[in-house]
């Protein structure tokens, strides 16, 4: 489903951010991507959502080779992914429901189905009561839930989260983590980049650990399964 094969990634004016990374993320899997700041976690995620292309090696996501991918194909790929960040990236001049609806509007969803879809995901993240609130009126944990709702509204096969709890206190962080677990239980794969070890200890999910751009540990690595698909 997501497959890295001997991936190297060098930024234009930087050293290698990722060295010889190979792994395979399966359908409905929950993965921790851990490592210190600068280890290469965000780089791995950016390669998945085709923000960057590998310098060498190959990245395959849901049948797309991201090397040389066109901008049109990138759009198509991203409609199948959900992405959330540490800083939420909400539009501050739009309400909760407008922020979520935005993701549907700009991808050409029929107007009639937008309302019900938005309400469904807002209910799922527990924010149906705050549909008309603006981001400024919400707590950090609530804002991240809005961002997650927006990521979910296009029914992605995988949710990619880059330090989603980095700006949250422990209580809010645990709430968001619980939400991600629930989402995974419903069949959506989750790739969670974090250096919050509290979360990593709370669940026994596969953990890929990076250090200076190298995978130094992968609790679920199975090279035989890498071969198929």
């Amino acid at each position: 489903m997501i497959k890295f094969n001997k991936v190297f990634m060098a930024y234009p004016k930087g050293s290698l951010a990722l060295k010889d990374a190979s792994f395979h993320i399966k359908k409905s899997e929950f993965i921790f991507l851990t490592g210190h700041s600068g280890a290469g976690k965000s780089t791995v995620l950016r390669l998945i959502y085709a923000e960057h292309q590998p310098t060498s090696g190959e990245v395959r996501v849901s049948g797309y080779h991201t090397t040389g991918i066109s901008s049109r194909e990138t759009s198509k790929l991203r409609r199948r992914l959900g992405i959330v960040f540490q800083d939420f990236r909400l539009l501050v001049d739009r309400t909760t429901e407008e922020n979520v609806a935005f993701a549907l509007e700009v991808t050409g969803t029929r107007r009639g189905v937008i309302g019900p879809k938005v309400m469904r995901v807002l209910t799922q993240v527990g924010l149906a009561g705050k549909a008309r609130s603006y981001p400024g009126q919400l707590s950090g944990g609530e804002q991240q839930r809005v961002a997650i709702a927006r990521a979910l509204v296009n029914d992605p096969f995988v949710l990619i989260a880059d330090e989603p709890t980095g700006n949250l206190d422990q209580r809010a962080a645990r709430g968001v983590f619980q939400l991600l677990q629930d989402i995974n239980t419903n069949g959506t794969a989750v790739v969670l980049a974090t250096h919050n070890l509290d979360l990593v200890r709370r669940a026994n999910y596969r953990n890929i650990e990076l250090q200076d751009g190298e995978i130094v540990f992968d609790s679920g690595n199975d090279t035989r399964e890498d071969m198929d698909e």
Binding site: T74, K76, R78, F102, T107
Partner: peptide, 12 residues
């Protein structure tokens, strides 16, 4: 940036 992230096309 958000449009890009959620898969809006460049033309859009």
């Amino acid at each position: 940036a958000i449009m890009r992230l959620v898969g809006a096309t460049d033309g859009f």
